[in-house]
């Protein structure tokens, strides 16, 4: 038996989504909230959406809050989402790394909230197209809180609606093949990506060291002390001359002063400050 979502629960979810994403859920969309949150409730072993809302209201864990907001706001993650961190990768970061590393020395990249894998595979495609030996030289670690998202990243399969979202057609035909109604990333690129579950708010397992970290649109869900803690842990798994990319609305400034903001492409990147 599942319990229907009471009006107060619905209002609470609306306020949460509005606060976190500025997206307004119109009244009368209770069924939409139910349909979108039901899988999350089931995943947590809860009988229904009402129980899920009750639990998160009593104890708002950032990870769960984020999952709820995501379930209600994002349909598909875009490829090349906010393109700047990707053009910066091929335009600035990779040339700098090539100059600083021995030829053929492995390059390690972390996609730290990989969702269904679009970011990790965007990086893989860009490097495969621009760096000789990328498929053997580049290792991409993709992590996400959600096991479902990690499984999806591992599978490297995307629906028609997903490949429609900002994936350049020449890249689609170069790196994907059709499998039934879906598109599958080529085995060579899939081998560049290792996906696993990871909670950024908890202790990190042995990782890295990374040359580049993409930690985009994650910090916004944490309170200031957690943000600082996450940034500190990220710095520990980065190489001293590494590059960190945050979401367009995120910064280390005023949170953790051990990073230097540098212009990178049309946007900014953050680099560990020397001596910190």
């Amino acid at each position: 038996m599942t319990t229907a979502l009471a009006t107060s629960g619905f209002d609470w979810v609306c306020q949460l989504v509005r606060r976190e994403s500025a997206i307004v859920l119109a009244p009368g969309k209770e069924y939409l909230v139910e349909a979108r949150l039901m899988p999350l409730a089931r995943q947590l072993g809860l009988p229904g959406v009402a129980e899920l809302v009750e639990r998160v209201r009593a104890r708002p864990e950032p990870a769960l809050v984020r999952s709820i907001v995501e379930a209600l706001t994002t349909n598909e993650t875009s490829w090349f989402r906010d393109g700047d961190p990707f053009t910066a990768l091929t335009g600035t970061v990779v040339p700098a790394l090539q100059a600083a590393r021995r030829p053929g020395e492995p390059i390690s990249i972390w996609s730290a909230a990989c969702s269904s894998g679009q970011e990790a595979y965007t990086i893989a495609m860009l490097l495969a197209d621009s760096l000789p030996n990328a498929t053997s030289r580049v290792r991409i670690t993709a992590t996400d809180l959600s096991r479902a998202m990690v499984d999806r990243t591992r599978a490297g399969r995307f629906s028609q609606l997903e490949v429609n979202r900002g994936l350049p057609a020449p890249m689609l035909v170069r790196h994907f093949s059709r499998v039934g109604a879906e598109w599958e990333i080529s085995p060579a690129l899939r081998q560049m990506v290792t996906a696993s579950e990871l909670n950024l708010a908890g202790p990190l397992p042995r990782l890295g060291p990374f040359d580049v970290v993409y930690l985009r649109n994650v910090l916004i869900y944490f309170d200031p002390p957690t943000k600082r803690e996450v940034l500190r842990k990220v710095r520990q798994v980065m190489r001293p001359d590494g590059w960190l990319f945050l979401g367009a609305a995120e910064t280390t400034l005023g949170v953790d002063d051990s990073w230097e903001r540098v212009p990178c492409g049309r946007g900014s990147a953050y680099r560990p400050m020397k001596g910190k």
Partner: peptide, 28 residues
């Protein structure tokens, strides 16, 4: 898709699509 790109098309949107998909392609 390969055929259309070879003929000179720059981009390709598959139906069904959402307004967001058109927006993403225009940005690209």
């Amino acid at each position: 898709i390969v055929k259309a790109l070879a003929a000179g098309a720059h981009e390709y949107v598959i139906k069904p699509f959402t307004a967001d998909a058109i927006a993403d392609k225009l940005s690209l």
